[in-house]
Amino acid sequence: MHLYRQFYVYILASKLGGTLYVGVTNDLMGRVSLHREGLGAAFTAKHKVSTLVYYEVHEEIEQAIRREKQIKRWKRAWKVRMIEECNPNWDDLFSRLV
Rank of each mutant, 00 (worst) to 15 (best):
H35N: 07
F7L: 06
A77Q: 14
P88V: 14
R66T: 12
G38T: 06
I65K: 08
L12E: 05
E59M: 09
E59T: 06
L97S: 01
F7P: 01
T25F: 08
E60L: 14
L16D: 12
E62Y: 11
Y54K: 11
N26T: 08
L16P: 00
W78L: 11
V53D: 01
R96Y: 12
Y55N: 00
N87A: 07
M1I: 06
R36M: 04
F94H: 03
S50N: 10
S50C: 13
S14Y: 07
A45M: 05
C86A: 10
V57I: 15
R5Q: 14
G40I: 03
P88M: 11
L39M: 07
T19S: 11
W78D: 11
S50Q: 11
L93F: 05
D27W: 15
G18L: 07
V98P: 04
V98K: 14
P88G: 04
D91E: 15
K79A: 14
G17R: 00
L28K: 01
C86D: 09
F7Q: 11
G30L: 01
R5A: 06
R96H: 12
F94M: 10
V24I: 12
K72G: 02
R67Y: 02
S33Q: 10
R96A: 10
V80D: 13
N89A: 12
R96T: 13
Y4R: 15
T25K: 07
W90V: 04
A42N: 09
R81F: 08
R67M: 11
L39W: 05
L12D: 00
I11C: 11
K72T: 10
R81I: 10
A41G: 01
Q6T: 14
E68R: 10
Y4C: 07
G18H: 06
E56V: 10
V80Q: 05
A64K: 08
T44Q: 01
F43A: 09
E56Q: 15
G18D: 07
V32T: 05
G17H: 02
K75M: 05
Y8G: 01
Y10N: 03
F94C: 05
E85Y: 02
I83T: 00
G17W: 08
V57F: 02
R96S: 13
C86E: 13
V9D: 07
A64L: 12
Y21D: 07
Y21M: 03
Q70E: 13
R31W: 02
W90Q: 08
V49D: 06
I83V: 14
E59P: 00
R5S: 06
M29P: 05
N26Y: 08
R36K: 13
R5Y: 08
V32K: 09
Q63D: 15
E62P: 01
N26K: 15
D92W: 03
V32M: 11
E68N: 00
R66P: 02
H2I: 11
K75V: 01
G30H: 06
L93Y: 00
L16W: 08
A64I: 12
T19P: 00
D91S: 15
R96E: 15
C86I: 15
T19F: 01
T44K: 05
L97N: 08
Y55G: 00
I71K: 07
R76M: 06
E85K: 12
L97V: 13
V98F: 09
M82S: 10
K15H: 11
V32W: 03
R36V: 00
R31L: 02
Y54I: 00
R31Q: 15
V9K: 01
R76T: 08
Y4L: 14
R67G: 04
